[in-house]
């Protein structure tokens, strides 16, 4: 199968690669770019383990062809926080025990990151609705919701202090 030349900006870094037209973004990220944070948990785009940010929107990378992402700006979990310090959301998930096996966590945090940009001060109901595309089998969500609300509050406090 002929391959396409694709250029992406992933976590701020420009990456070039060849991919088949049918190749999924999740496979390109995981297998060609070595970004194994986003995971594959289903084949019907229900679970959200593969969630990344593409051009400022949450997408499930199992439902996007790599070719569709040509020229796109992509943020994965690897683009949040740094080895020296956790992002506020990462810290909140740890603080509030919002993860157990860790498999859904990268998609969960990446989605929460976008959600809080779209709605910086959400209610519990809005968090639950906004996160409904990401499944978790371990936590029962209660602590995930708590973590996201706590992160929102902290981000808002920091923002207010800066203003």
């Amino acid at each position: 199968m002929s391959r396409m030349h694709i250029t992406l900006t992933v976590n701020g870094e420009e990456r070039e690669l060849l991919a088949e037209p049918r190749e999924l973004l999740i496979h390109v990220l995981r297998e060609k770019l070595g970004l194994t944070g986003p995971h594959i948990g289903c084949d019907t785009s229900h679970c959200g383990a593969c969630t990344v940010e593409m051009n400022g929107r949450s997408v499930k990378a199992c439902t996007v062809f790599a070719a569709q992402a040509d020229g796109a700006e992509i943020t994965t979990i690897e683009g949040l926080g740094s080895p020296d310090g956790l992002h506020v959301l990462q810290q909140a998930f740890r603080e509030h025990h919002g993860l157990q096996c860790g498999f859904c966590t990268p998609g969960m945090i990446t989605r929460a990151h976008r959600l809080l940009q779209e709605n910086p001060d959400p209610t519990e109901e809005e968090v639950r609705f906004g996160m409904a595309g990401n499944l978790c089998r371990c936590t029962g969500y209660q602590n995930i919701v708590k973590a996201i609300l706590a992160a929102a509050e902290e981000m808002n406090t920091v923002k207010e202090a800066a203003e």
Binding site: T36, P38, I77, E78, P83, L86, R94, G102, F103, T105
Partner: peptide
Amino acid sequence: RKRVEDVRFTHGKGNYVDDIK
């Protein structure tokens, strides 16, 4: 006690079987 596992998991640095290459 906060979990020691969480730093790597929240960074996307877990190592699951499909990550092995």
